[in-house]
């Protein structure tokens, strides 16, 4: 795969060491190029990339609030169209909280209206900007500051909300999951999303060293483990057709993934087995 060298997110931003979100943005922008406007929801990415008077963005970028990035993007897209700038990509980068929770209404509205935009949810599975509180995208068993483990609790007691499938239910032309640890797969999906007329949704799994509790040098490794264990599945839904885009040669036990992160360290065998059997069930359906 031919990967452009040019970077559109400058180094020197304030992200934590090993940040997965900024890796995702860099990869996406390599595919989208200079002729792109980015919209961010409030969150880690917005804060670390734009400490006034500095900015890491080499393309035009706008942030308005937390819950409305899809609505802002709707306005941007129509304003560009009204000026005859139909060729400009409009891409949203919003976290899992800004997507699955507080931003779900505006996202649903934008998807249903059919705006020509790419919405990329960078999913680190909790509210990391405010210090690791659970979101709708927090997985079962994870300990966060608002779903802590304790004598009466094993952590988050609900499974991760399935946002990509909710997006697919909107009937949009392109929905995909991706991982920053599979850059070619992700970038191909971004490229495809940019070529499709209408809304595209990409749910990008990205490990967070600070929130998940692992050594910052292991971000890519953690992302791979999520996929190799079947905890995160890479697929795309193009015009309603579902396709798994990556199948591990041999699926690893979920324990390897869980035990490498502080957020799952407390789990008893019983919960780990429950997670394994859930993963087995999903993978069996998809023949992974």
């Amino acid at each position: 795969m031919d990967i452009p060298e040019e970077e559109f997110l400058a180094p020197g931003h304030r992200a934590c060491a090993g940040c997965g979100a900024t890796i995702g943005v860099r990869l996406a922008l390599k595919m989208l190029g200079k002729n792109t406007v980015a919209v961010s929801a409030t969150g880690c990415l917005e804060v670390v990339t734009t400490p006034y008077p500095e900015t890491a963005w080499k393309i035009p970028w706008i942030h308005v609030a937390f819950e409305n990035s899809a609505a802002v993007a709707s306005g941007v897209e129509r304003a560009l169209r009204s000026q005859g700038k139909d060729d400009v990509n409009v891409v949203v980068f919003a976290g899992d909280g800004g997507t699955a929770d507080i931003g779900l209404q505006s996202l649903s509205g934008a998807m249903e209206r059919g705006h020509n935009l790419i919405y990329i949810c960078y999913d680190n599975e909790a509210y990391m900007n405010t210090g690791v509180q659970r979101s709708g995208a927090t997985p079962y068993g994870a300990s966060t500051t608002t779903s802590p483990h304790g004598k009466e609790s094993f952590g988050e007691d609900k499974p991760k909300k399935n946002i990509p499938m909710i997006m697919a239910a909107h009937g949009v032309p392109y929905v995909a999951t991706a991982s920053i640890s599979y850059p070619e797969d992700f970038m191909k999906k971004v490229k495809k999303a940019s070529e499709i007329e209408g809304p595209a949704y990409i749910h990008l799994h990205q490990p967070c060293a600070t929130g998940w509790g692992y050594d910052p040098s292991k971000t890519i490794e953690l992302g791979r483990l999520a996929v190799e264990t079947g905890s995160w599945i890479l697929y795309e839904i193009e015009d309603g057709e579902f396709k798994v885009t990556y199948r591990p040669m041999e699926r690893k036990p979920v324990n390897i993934y869980l035990e490498s992160q502080k957020r799952f360290k407390h789990l008893a065998d019983e919960e780990k087995e429950r997670i394994q059997s859930y993963v087995d069930q999903v993978c069996a359906e998809l023949k992974i």
Binding site: I62, S74, G75, V76, R78, A79, Q83, Q105, S106
Partner: peptide, 26 residues
């Protein structure tokens, strides 16, 4: 004009800020 049938007033004003930010009268 581009008429956007938004799903709430919150999104109406949000889209207006986005459009105005993109340089058009809204």
């Amino acid at each position: 004009a581009e008429y956007i049938r938004v799903e709430s007033e919150h999104s109406a004003i949000s889209a207006a800020v986005g459009a105005s930010g993109a340089g058009v009268r809204t």
